[in-house]
């Protein structure tokens, strides 16, 4: 292949989680140099190691300080409400549903990023389903009423409130010990990450209902991207589409193995933790749907504005058969 020598920096997702260690790191450090004969060199670092918190990455790609980055879109819901569109709390039931929603949304979102934020959208990624872990027994989502649930961000908090629970804000670093000591009754994290962090030793009950996912996007600064040789652009576009697919597959697998590991197995990562799985009932589904319709969607519409709502209705809404009034 006749590519020019190209070197750039890439900021990856959370450095300790499998999206980075199993997918992004091997892609940038092994696959890309191998496939391009060393012509394309990417210097990849997880944002956590760089001392970022997450919210600044979108801005830094937009201003061009960073060439390329993977970032969870919800980190920026405070300044770019549109980012939250496909990862709204309580809306989607599985990683597969998320993949469909994202496909419907992709062209509109890509255009939005290019025209409004000087960013080229190159693909998506996602974490496993984020589920609820609780210390004390519950048999239905309605039982969460009155419990202190650690929730991050306005959407999760609104969701917990509308289910009758009490949303509590605690620094991420303090969640694990707070759940252990009982500062909070319940907390939300990934189906497999909670197993790996041994949350099961303090929380004994788990609900398989995805609260949301942690949808991420692979972003590039538009000016920098336009300056790349066409052959490099073409190679990266195809390569990153492949990365997206494999990350979604990983997330789907990890959601399943995570739930299995936390309960009775089989578990490829260690001994099953023996937590009680609290299956989702029909009443639960009605409750969640009501909460989405009455709390999540109207709040999203208010943050996002009329134009954004119209885009949502035409893309994600159409694929789900839901309309925001």
């Amino acid at each position: 292949q006749d590519m020019p020598e190209t070197e750039f920096n890439v900021v990856g997702s959370i450095g300790t989680l499998s999206m980075y260690t199993d997918k992004e790191l091997p892609f940038w450090s092994e696959q890309v140099p191998a496939e391009t004969g060393g012509k394309v060199k990417a210097n990849v670092k997880p944002f956590t190691e760089l001392g970022f918190k997450g919210g600044e990455i979108f801005r830094l790609v937009s201003t061009g300080t960073l060439h390329m980055a993977t970032t969870v879109l919800a980190y920026n819901s405070g300044e770019v409400p549109m980012n939250e569109s496909a990862d709204l709390v309580g809306l989607l039931g599985s990683v597969e549903e998320l993949a469909d929603a994202v496909d419907a949304w992709r062209p509109a979102f890509a255009e939005f990023l290019e025209t409004q934020h000087n960013i080229k959208l190159l693909g998506f990624g996602t974490y496993q389903a984020q589920v609820i872990y609780c210390r004390d027994e519950f048999t239905a989502i309605a039982d969460l009423a009155g419990r202190k649930v650690r929730a991050s961000g306005a959407s999760q908090q609104a969701f917990v409130s509308s289910l009758g629970g009490s949303p509590v804000s605690i620094a991420f670093a303090e969640v694990s010990s707070s759940l252990a000591s009982g500062v909070v009754d319940c907390a939300i994290t990934g189906a497999l990450s909670g197993y790996k962090a041994k949350w099961s030793e303090s929380a004994r009950f788990i609900s398989p209902m995805p609260v949301n996912f942690g949808l991420a996007a692979q972003l590039a600064n538009l000016d920098w991207w336009n300056g790349l040789d066409a052959s490099v652009q073409e190679y990266l576009t195809t390569g990153l589409a492949g990365l997206e697919t494999s990350i979604f597959e990983l997330a789907a697998t990890e959601t399943e193995t995570g739930l299995a590991c936390n309960t009775s197995g089989p578990c490829p990562h260690g001994d099953p933790a023996g937590m009680t799985l609290v299956p989702l009932t029909e009443a639960d589904e009605t409750l969640v749907a009501e909460s989405v319709a009455s709390a999540i969607l109207p709040a999203f519409a208010e943050r996002c504005g009329a134009e954004c709502v119209a885009t949502w209705n035409e893309t994600i809404g159409a694929s789900l058969g839901v309309t925001i009034e």
């Binding site: 201003t63 405070g78 300044e79 991050s152 306005a154 804000s169």
Partner: peptide
């Protein structure tokens, strides 16, 4: 930049950053 983007805080308070 926060002002230009109309950035708001992440909690329910939605304080303009």
């Amino acid at each position: 930049q926060s002002y230009a983007m109309g950035a708001q805080s992440m909690s329910l308070l939605r304080i303009p950053m």
